[in-house]
Design a protein around this nucleic acid. Structure first.
Lengths: 145, 145
DNA sequence: CTTTTTGCAAAGCTTTTGCACCACA
DNA sequence: TGTGGTGCAAAAGCTTTGCAAAAAG
């Protein structure tokens, strides 16, 4: 069987001269845990705070930064104060409903259309993993919420 | 001649039971000033700080909130810590280059295509004034910056 | 006069940083 | 054992808030 994402990531950390620590294992576990697709630093902190090693907030932030550099997670630009991350292996665009705060996934087909329209018209190359478009979902648009 | 945007906005404030104050005039003037398309609260504060009334930071934030409710300005979700606003009468989407931090305007035609693709496929109604898509501009994509 | 706004100052929130101590490899 | 990581605590940056004084209508 192929190495798990956790193992591959830990190996990559070692390969880069980094060290594998309980804090890093805990953060990685929290991210891959329970089908978490989107998460904030605060959520990860809450999750690891219940583990044996209880890493500090600062360590969570530093680890998230490391994982971003490794390409394991991607920071999104959603509204709100806290940075929302998602797993890079679940890369897709997002629609943000202003009515109910739902986060809807953009179908890959639509995302590709968006990318090619923009590239054709402006030469701009879209980063598909970071697209987040505000508006209203079908339900909220329908009832004017 | 038609009433200016400033006058129309002041009238709207009065109509809503609000009051026209020097601070509000100054903020409004700063926004409509010098072809400012994008701006932060800090920039507006810096601008009004040089006026007679010298409104407080808090007043600038409160006024920006009022103007957002009135639909005069729109807060964007760009990267970075500070909220970037733009004038609603210059409504258009934005492309954000990760290479050079340029903010490119999305052509209206492209924005309409994006809106209809998403609405067709997901029922989601895009808010065109708030679209901000990350990627790389032609120049940066070309030379891998 | 009444009600809305303002200024001031302090606090809130997320995130970052300096530094001494600890622990992977 | 040496470099890299962690915890702790404080600070930074943007924005919000409570309250008494000021002012618009």
């Amino acid at each position: 069987m192929p190495a798990s994402l956790v193992d591959r990531t830990l190996a990559e950390i070692r390969a880069g001269g980094g060290r594998v620590t309980p804090a890093r294992r805990a953060v990685l576990a929290a991210i891959l845990d329970a089908g978490r697709h989107h998460f904030t630093a605060a959520e990860i902190f809450a999750a690891v705070d219940g583990t044996r090693s209880r890493p500090d907030r600062a360590t969570v932030y530093r680890t998230l930064e490391l994982l971003t550099e490794l390409g394991v997670v991607t920071p999104l630009q959603l509204a709100g104060d806290a940075t929302v991350y998602h797993r890079s292996d679940h890369r897709h665009g997002h629609l943000l409903c202003a009515g109910c705060d739902a986060v809807v996934e953009i179908p890959d087909t639509a995302l590709r259309v968006i990318g090619s329209v923009l590239e054709d018209e402006t030469g701009f190359v879209v980063d598909p993993g970071r697209v987040a478009i505000p508006g209203r979902c079908r339900a909220c648009a329908g009832r004017g919420t």
